[in-house]
């Protein structure tokens, strides 16, 4: 059985910035209720170096994050490793985590990034209706995808 990691990152204290974390929390509830095997869930404010170790232990990885760009409710794309420079903040891009995983552990688990469109980033407010709708659409999509990941993966 393939081991799949679903990792949401962002700040739930900043409205839509927490969409990735909210998605993972909803999926975790769903997976437990439906007894979907092989899924692991994690979340944090941002990605960091030690996440390279976390993804190395899985056959397939899905990162979930919020985005302020794009016309669609969500977007889903395959990532390729790419080490970038981090200036002053304490986070790593998902591509960098993947690159670090390849460098350190010789593994490149197939990795996707699901970005959910957000537009409100105020402290600790509730998720606006638009973000909730985008989240719901992303959850429906990812549930289906997780039930039947592409055969080539």
């Amino acid at each position: 059985m393939r081991s799949v990691l679903c990792y949401g990152y962002g700040n739930p204290g900043r409205q839509d910035d927490g969409l990735g974390v909210a998605l993972v929390e909803q999926l975790e509830t769903w997976a437990m209720a439906e007894k979907i095997p092989g899924l692991t869930f994690d979340s944090n404010y941002q990605l960091n170096a030690e996440d390279a170790l976390a993804i190395a232990g899985h056959d397939l990885v899905i990162f979930a994050d919020a985005t302020g760009e794009g016309a669609d409710a969500f977007a889903f794309r395959r990532l390729v490793p790419h080490a970038t420079i981090a200036f002053s903040t304490h986070a790593m891009a998902p591509e960098s985590v993947l690159a670090l995983c390849a460098e350190l552990y010789g593994k490149q688990p197939p990795t996707w990034l699901l970005t959910i469109r957000g537009s409100a980033w105020e402290p600790n407010g509730a998720l606006p209706a638009a973000a909730q709708a985008n989240l719901a659409a992303a959850v429906v999509f990812l549930k289906e995808w997780l039930r039947r990941p592409p055969a080539a993966v």
Partner: peptide
Amino acid sequence: DPCLGCATHTLPGHMPL
């Protein structure tokens, strides 16, 4: 080791200068 804003990250995961 400054921390300039908050937990919110930009999409690329870092703050450009």
